Computed example of a mutant assay.
Amino acid sequence: MDYEQAGELKIGQVGIANLRVRTLDVPRLVQEMNERVTRAPKLFGRAAVILDFGGLSRTPDVASAQALLDGLRGAGVLPVALAYGTSEIELLSQQLGLPLLAKFRAQYEPADAGESVAPRAAPAAPVREVRRSAPAAAALAAKPAPAAVPKPGRMQLANVRSGQQLYAENCDLTVMATVGAGAEVIADGSIHIYGTLRGRALAGAQGNTAARIFCRDFHAELVAIAGHYKVLDDVPDNLRGKAVQVWLEQDQIKIAALD
């Protein structure tokens, strides 16, 4: 017998802040988060936050982690999960009653500066010798290799309304209209906005530090490149309402008017 579900579960792309703990100083972490919420309450007030303990040499004990959770809630944000790391982190998540989000850091935070990860080599396929006649071999060598087909960027023609989120996976995003307040546009590449940007724009979401944001009318709530962000309150008044470009330079967000 078929039953109609009371709730429909869907897995989708969500924008969640990732707090990577580099020093387990609970009062200092809580103070820093309180300052962020105070500066931009519409952005960070009651924001969902992932805790990432991967930057620590040792996994925190349950009491310290629980104190941090309570402090962050008191500062105005909502810790919702731990970033996946080690078996100790998995055990800690169970003790705290929080889920793990696997590979979360890979989506929104690049590897640490100076850290190099060698790509895993694919298993070698068995080699089989094939004999061809001289004319056939010459014809095969003369045949040009097929050109790689570039993946087109995603284009949005209509306005992006409050509460909407667009994500351009492995490509640039071009918005020909307005990104409203409370809306969010995300791209693994660069973001080009030909209307007004009032919401949030996050470029280089997979860690591409060379990504940029271009906007014709800048009023953004937040802009981010490869996880580094800047809120509107930190932007000079002379850049608001201007055509600007946003880029990352030595882990600092830079914003300049376009000539």
Rank of each mutant, 00 (worst) to 15 (best):
V127K: 12
G71L: 06
P150L: 00
A113T: 06
L140D: 06
P99Q: 06
S162V: 04
L82C: 10
A177I: 05
A124F: 09
A136F: 02
Q164W: 02
P119Y: 02
V127S: 10
A125C: 07
L173Y: 08
S162D: 08
Q107W: 11
L140Q: 12
E115A: 10
G182I: 03
E109P: 11
S116T: 04
A158G: 13
L69R: 07
K143M: 13
K143T: 14
P146S: 04
L100P: 10
T196N: 09
G189N: 00
G189T: 09
L166A: 06
R128V: 06
R200F: 07
K151V: 14
P152M: 00
L100K: 05
G97I: 07
I89W: 01
P144A: 04
A148I: 13
V77S: 01
A113E: 13
Q95E: 08
G204E: 03
P99R: 01
L96I: 07
D172P: 13
E88Q: 15
L101R: 00
V117P: 05
T196K: 06
A205N: 10
S64W: 01
V127F: 02
A125Y: 08
A138C: 06
A118T: 07
A138M: 12
P123M: 05
A122I: 09
V130D: 09
E115W: 01
E129L: 14
V175E: 08
V175R: 03
A65S: 12
A139N: 05
A118Q: 15
P152G: 00
L82K: 05
A136S: 14
Q164S: 12
L72E: 06
A136D: 13
F104E: 05
A122C: 13
E129R: 13
D188S: 11
R154C: 07
D61N: 14
A125G: 04
L68K: 08
R161G: 05
S93L: 09
A168N: 03
S190K: 02
G180V: 06
P144K: 02
A121I: 11
L96M: 15
A75R: 08
P99D: 05
A177T: 00
L68F: 05
R73W: 03
D112G: 00
K151S: 12
L82D: 03
A125P: 01
P144D: 08
E129S: 12
A137D: 14
R161P: 09
A181D: 03
P135L: 14
A124E: 11
Q107H: 13
K151W: 06
G182Q: 02
R120Y: 04
